[in-house]
């Protein structure tokens, strides 16, 4: 392949996508916001962002017409990265929005953060890799990197979870299964650590 990997950031009308686009460009990707299926199909990598509520994002993704393109990308095996609510949408449903369904790539229901801590978690926290190995997204980031979280709900910890953070107990923070990655935190807002992780994703798509 010649040139920079083309990363499609799905623009389905939710939130501040400029940061994700700029951060990916900063680490060498030809990233752009896309809102049509053809551009998604042509991309070397796909980022599914999302902020706000699970239900609003699920609805917006469906109504934008981009859901089939997202599903096709997931089935094709192209590098795919769900961020924040985009990560939660990889699961079946969420207690936040009981009437809505997610993409269901991973099993389980997104639930509230543990009791006894502030909701939302709006802070930097350290990633902990349960078995001490270094999963692909975290290569070169150093031990227990600090990343920025803003969320009140979180997917369950499953076989796909490769890193957690401690917030009233272990909380799923990062998943990776082959080319499919998901992060509850915001790599595009996590300074050097976040840019390093995004660079790893861009390398995956190269």
């Amino acid at each position: 392949m010649t040139g920079s990997p083309r990363i499609a950031v799905l623009d389905y009308g939710i939130g501040n996508l400029r940061s994700a686009e700029k951060a990916l460009q900063h680490v060498g990707a030809a990233a752009r916001l896309v809102s049509d299926a053809a551009s998604v199909a042509a991309a070397d990598g796909v980022v599914l962002p999302g902020v706000g509520a699970f239900g609003a994002c699920a609805r917006a993704l469906r109504e934008s017409g981009l859901e089939p393109a997202a599903r096709a990308a997931l089935e094709s095996g192209v590098p795919f990265f769900g961020v924040c609510i985009g990560f939660q949408l990889l699961y079946e449903r969420s207690e936040e929005s009981p009437g809505e369904v997610g993409l269901g790539v991973f099993p389980g229901t997104v639930g509230p953060l543990p009791p006894g801590v502030k909701h939302p978690q709006m802070q930097w926290n350290q990633l902990v890799v349960p078995d001490g190995s270094v999963p692909a997204p975290l290569r070169g980031l150093g031990e227990n990197p600090w990343v920025y979280f803003v969320h009140s709900y979180v997917p369950p910890i499953g076989d796909e979870t490769v890193a957690v953070c401690d917030y009233g107990g272990p909380v799923a923070a990062l998943v990776a299964r082959g080319n499919l990655w998901g992060a509850q935190f915001h790599p595009e807002k996590s300074g050097r650590s976040g840019l390093g992780l995004l660079a790893n994703f861009v390398a995956l798509a190269a």
Partner: peptide, 11 residues
């Protein structure tokens, strides 16, 4: 804000 967002990747 726009110029800042091009080079600063924290909240």
């Amino acid at each position: 804000v726009a110029r800042t967002a091009e080079q600063v990747f924290i909240p």
